[in-house]
Every structure is written in structure tokens, then in C-alpha cells.
Design a protein around this nucleic acid. Sequence first.
DNA 1: CCTCCTTGGCTAACGGCGTTAGCTAGACAG
DNA 2: CTGTCTAGCTAACGCCGTTAGCCAAGGAGG
Lengths: 171, 171
Amino acid sequence: MADRPRSRQIVDAARELLETEGADALTMRRIADRLGIRAPSLYKHFPDKQAVEAELIAQGLAEMADAQEAAVAAEPGQPLVALGAAYREYALAHPHLYRLMTAGPLPRHLLPDGLEARAALPLVKAVPDEHRARAVWAFAHGMVILELDGRFPPDADLDPAWRVGMATFST
Amino acid sequence: MADRPRSRQIVDAARELLETEGADALTMRRIADRLGIRAPSLYKHFPDKQAVEAELIAQGLAEMADAQEAAVAAEPGQPLVALGAAYREYALAHPHLYRLMTAGPLPRHLLPDGLEARAALPLVKAVPDEHRARAVWAFAHGMVILELDGRFPPDADLDPAWRVGMATFST
DNA sequence: CCTCCTTGGCTAACGGCGTTAGCTAGACAG
DNA sequence: CTGTCTAGCTAACGCCGTTAGCCAAGGAGG
């Protein structure tokens, strides 16, 4: 079901809407509009909206995994710093998708097997201790989501905060 | 408007709904039901739903500030550890309110002046360097929100991750 | 005492949401 | 030619936040 051509078009339309107009625009009716059809017709291809969102989340996780793998490959000396920079860069480039990927519980049963693990792998390899790896992940996610949500003071320069955090965890 | 008795009842009903049934239950109609009135009547007391939510956010921030201040007062030797524990404890005790407080942009224009600063003050005092303070905040928020959203493996013991993170930032 | 205005309810309704039921035109297989 | 499946459609349901407009009760001023 998920890789039939029409289904791909639906996911593409959904992604375009999400990335350009944000989560509020990600509506079954708006998706259908983009394809010149009516909202109920979407249910011939996906059981519900959550299934469409799950495809977007899967795309995001895969792209995030790619970015992380590329980052460690490019800078093997400082894997943590490279990972952090790549993580932040992807999130800022796709803020709405990043929020969709990370806000609320993951619909794990709708995601390809092993995808979540693949996205986590670069960090797990760079930080073998699992507790430390979780701490680093929490730091990176916290930095990104607070930045995306405008929680830091508007004039705050976040580069030093990233540097301090990454340096702290690197020792 | 915000401290008239009827307005207080509305906010109390909203909080009860949010804490016991989650964000989906926080509905103008459900709030009104609790008070035995109809939803449109709520608009005689608040201009819109966001204003009610802002009151809840203000409550949460104030309570969080109280908890943090009490934590450093009780354990002045290890302020960071005390702050982290109090932060996590409050978030886990009020998961839906914590999400409301921290998800998406803050409606700053609807919050009492200085409240946001007061909530941040204990951490700022414990960690004088602003960049480091932001990094610690990001870590704590990341840990909490990932835990609330079930993003860590279900059997993960998060105490060690907190310890590692807090110890790392304490040095 | 009567009148007027404010307060805080009400019903009806609008446009949006996700979703379901039920219909149908067309393609394609036997 | 007939039957079946695909993928569209309209109509509708029950939610949502919100607005318009009406009205009863009560207090203030003459």
C-alpha cells in the first residue's frame, strides 16, 4: 500500500504542505486539494491520517540517519561534535518535520522495522555507554526543540551553548 | 478579568480536565460542562481558549519556580543535582501540564511580567555562565520530554542518564 | 418606584476538522 | 459479455473554536 504511485503522491503532497505551511496546514482536505481530489478519496490509500504522518516520520528518521552517518564519516576525529552539528542542521532545515518526528509518542507499529535503531546508531557508536548516550541525545533534542520553539531569549547566541554541552560530554 | 471568582472556576475546571484526561480533553465544551454552563458563556470571561491555556501555563511556571527554589534551599551543597531532581519530579507529576507549558511557543504577552524569569532564576544562580545554563536546561528538558513521550526504550533506567548528565555539567 | 445598563447566561449557527457510508464510472479478467 | 476491483465522488456525522444575537436578573441613578 505504501509504495503505490498514488500513495507516494499523497505523501509528497503532505510533506510539501507540512514543510512550507506547518502542522496546521497538514489536513486531509488540504492534501487532497493538492492532488485535485476530495478528502474521502485519500482513505482508499491510507487508513487514516496517522498513517500518512507515519510515512513522513519515517522519511525524516531516514534522512536524519543519513545526515548523521555522513557527518561521522566526514569528521571521524570529533564524532560527537559532528553529530551534534548535523543534528541541529537537519532540524533547523526541516523544523515542522522535526517537530512531527519528535512531538508525542512514536507510532512505532507503523514504522519500518529497524529504522528507529538505525537513526540512533551513529550516536550509540560514538558514545558507547548507553546512559551517556541518552544524556547526549536529551541535550541535543532539548537544544533543538527549545530553539525551534523560540524558548531561548531572542538574542541568545546558541553556538556557545552547543559548544559547552558537546565539550562537556566529550570528556 | 483573570481573578474574578468565575474565571478562577473556569481555570480550575480546565486544569482538572488537563491533568486527569490530557490535552485532548481540554475543550471549551468540556470545561463548560464541568461548570454546568454552555461553551459560548466562557467567552464572557476569557477572550479565547489560548487565554485559558495561558493561565494554566502561568500556574505551572509558578509551581515549577516554587519547586526549584525549595530544592536549592533544601540541598544547597549540590544545587544542580537538586534542581534536576525537582525539575523531573514536577514534570512527571504533571505530565500534561508540563507538555502544555513547554510545547510550542510561549504566549509571553499573556503571562505575568517576570514569571518566566523567576522560573529560570534558580538555574541561572546555580550556573552563572549563561551558555552553560542553557545547555543544562536543554538537557533537563530533553530528558523529561523524551521520557514523557516514551521515546527511550521502555525498560531504560533513566536515573543513571540523569546522574551522568548532571555530574558532567557539575564539573 | 421606575428606568437603564451591565453581567452572565442562553440558542443557533458558521466554517473547519477527521472520518464513514454508500454510490458509480471505468478498467480489466475470465 | 459479464463480473469484479479500483479509485473517485457526495452527503453526512460528531467533534472543534468561535461569533451573533437574544434575554433574565440585578444594581444604580433619578
